[in-house]
């Protein structure tokens, strides 16, 4: 039973980070209409920047996180403007190839700048808590709380503000949104900024627990894809719930089922779900 709760807690922690990444990805999907493969390298870039700020410049963890989110939001907007906007009218596959090109550029750029070795964050908030036989570090609690607050803020932003409503409108119907007087180019730019900032936040949060290295994004991006497919492409609640489901399945599966094939558990789940429900768990039928 203790193992169960320990794994469940780990799963919730992983899941909250997955949800952040998937939430950004699903927002951007609304603009691009293809899954943005480059989302994972931006998460990696976020983790690196925060690592440098904390270890080399001695910044406070939270200052580093905020600054990283701002910087990555700007980078995300630049990418939208320079790479994806010119491809708006082209077939979707072209955006897909451009995203692969971006992965090559950013991942190998990180390799050149910072080398292939794993970087470890200086310990932050590593106090231990024991509770009913479960052990948890303060940092893990902070990850869950921060991720959930960011998700709630995003939900409020999308539901309650006009800007949020224009993002949803553009994702639902680009031409319709333009007819209603929405500047869809500007919405695309902002969405990319927000989505990338969320990926950066996820990278900064998980950085001190996992290690920071150039290819850390590729493992995560595949899982984020699984999540937004499970949750139904473009569905915001689907991405959030899907993230938690995947995190919990992974840690319980790792604890009880298999350690050898642990990393493909997620993909197996997805293939099975798609075989039964071709539009994902929360997706609308065509």
């Amino acid at each position: 039973m203790e193992l169960f709760f320990q794994q469940l807690l780990n799963g919730i922690m992983l899941g909250s980070v997955y949800s952040l990444v998937a939430l950004g990805l699903t927002l951007i999907y609304g603009i691009l209409h293809v899954p943005n493969f480059a989302h994972g390298v931006l998460y990696m870039l976020g983790a690196y920047l925060a690592y440098l700020m904390v270890s080399a410049l001695g910044f406070n963890f939270w200052v580093a996180m905020l600054l990283t989110m701002v910087i990555l939001a700007v980078i995300g907007m630049l990418i939208e403007r320079l790479v994806f906007r010119p491809l708006m009218e082209a077939p979707h596959l072209n955006s897909f190839i451009a995203a692969i090109g971006l992965i090559y550029i950013i991942e190998n750029g990180a390799l050149i700048l910072w080398g292939p070795d794993f970087k470890r964050f200086p310990a932050v908030y590593d106090q231990l808590y024991h509770f009913l036989g479960i052990t948890i570090t303060l940092h893990r609690i902070i990850i869950v709380l921060t991720a959930i607050s960011l998700i709630v803020i995003m939900q409020l932003f999308i539901k309650k503000t006009t800007l949020g409503a224009t993002i949803v409108a553009t994702a639902q119907d680009r031409i319709g949104a333009r007819l209603a007087g929405i500047n869809v180019e500007r919405v695309g730019l902002i969405t990319f900024g927000i989505g990338t900032a969320l990926a950066a936040a996820a990278g900064v949060l998980i950085g001190p627990i996992l290690l920071v290295y150039p290819s850390m994004g590729s493992a995560l991006i595949l899982k984020a894809f699984v999540i937004i497919i499970l949750g139904g492409m473009g569905s915001i609640p689907g991405a959030i719930i899907g993230g938690f489901i995947l995190g919990i399945i992974e840690s319980l599966g790792g604890g009880y089922l298999t350690t050898q094939y642990n990393e493909v558990l997620a993909f197996g789940v997805l293939v099975t779900v798609l075989a039964i429900r071709p539009t994902g768990l929360f997706g609308k039928a065509h």
Partner: peptide, 15 residues
């Protein structure tokens, strides 16, 4: 896999 469409098919086959 071919029961799915578009991005679902792409990501399903990727997995």
């Amino acid at each position: 896999a071919l029961r799915t469409k578009g991005s679902y098919f792409a990501i399903g086959t990727l997995c």
